[in-house]
């Protein structure tokens, strides 16, 4: 025989599951009264997902999103009271929906929304100043490594994830051709998150740099991704957007 459940366990069991009856410990076993808590919890968490994934909400429509979100909060209630991080596995949940198979870009749009919030709440840090790079000896260049800014993130997608994200965070127009690849960089030099589509080669270059390899190795990676990789343009882009916070000169990581 299982141990008798605590009041709290019995109360919690039905909060997200409408098929569970009112806990016996509740005086009078009043369904409408217990339902206030169920409703508070469900509506509150569905609203949290709406706030966290506004582009997905617009793409799916309010009613469809609410239904999907209700299912998600029942299956995956938050594990942290930091609700602005809630829904880390919502993109995967979207990808797993058979009904949404015709919209394969949704998961990556949701990933971009998740990355946006992570960037928004990331730690404050200075960004690499152009003078720091300008002042380097030519001989030091080969061993140059960069430390990414805490808000820096990259996303590569086979879909036009930036165009769809941008159009649906505000009331923008529909994106005509979602099935084209895009590479996206997120930075937050001070308070505003910058979401920028970048060339494929720059994505490979930044990705390598952020992993801690030298500038030379990262440049090689950029060309490996894309023959037309423009190293000077990519360096300019990263400094302008505040992708990195500091540099170091060491032969090995």
């Amino acid at each position: 025989m299982p141990v008798e459940r605590s009041v709290e366990a019995a109360f919690a069991a039905g909060l997200l599951d409408p098929s569970v009856s009112v806990p016996v410990q509740v005086k009078g076993q009043t369904p409408r009264r217990y339902a206030v808590y169920r409703n508070n919890v469900t509506v509150g968490l569905v609203r949290a997902l709406e706030a966290n994934f506004p582009a997905i909400r617009r793409l799916l429509g309010e009613a469809y999103f609410a239904g999907l979100a209700r299912q998600f909060v029942q299956d995956y209630p938050p594990r942290s009271p930091l609700l602005f991080h809630y829904g880390a596995n919502f993109p995967a949940h979207l990808a797993a929906q058979d009904d949404l198979a015709a919209y394969p870009y949704l998961a990556d749009v949701a990933r971009l929304e998740q990355l946006w919030r992570q960037a928004y709440h990331a730690a404050d840090a200075p960004t690499l100043a152009p003078e720091e790079l300008a002042g380097l000896d030519e001989a030091a260049m080969a061993d140059l490594r960069l430390t990414p800014h805490p808000a820096f993130a990259l996303l590569a997608s086979p879909y036009a994830v930036h165009a769809i994200f941008t159009a649906n965070r505000a009331a923008g127009a529909a994106v005509a051709d979602p099935a084209r690849p895009e590479w996206v960089m997120l930075t937050r030099p001070r308070f505003d998150v910058i979401v920028k589509p970048i060339p494929k080669g720059a994505h490979g270059f930044f990705s390598a740099l952020a992993s801690g390899v030298t500038l030379a190795e990262a440049a090689e990676q950029g060309f490996a991704c894309d023959d037309s990789f423009d190293l000077a343009a990519a360096i300019r882009l990263m400094v302008e957007a505040g992708a990195f916070q500091s540099l170091s000169l060491r032969a090995t990581p």
Partner: peptide, 9 residues
């Protein structure tokens, strides 16, 4: 590398 950095900056 140095010339790319110089051009960028």
């Amino acid at each position: 590398l140095a010339s790319a950095v110089t051009a960028a900056v």
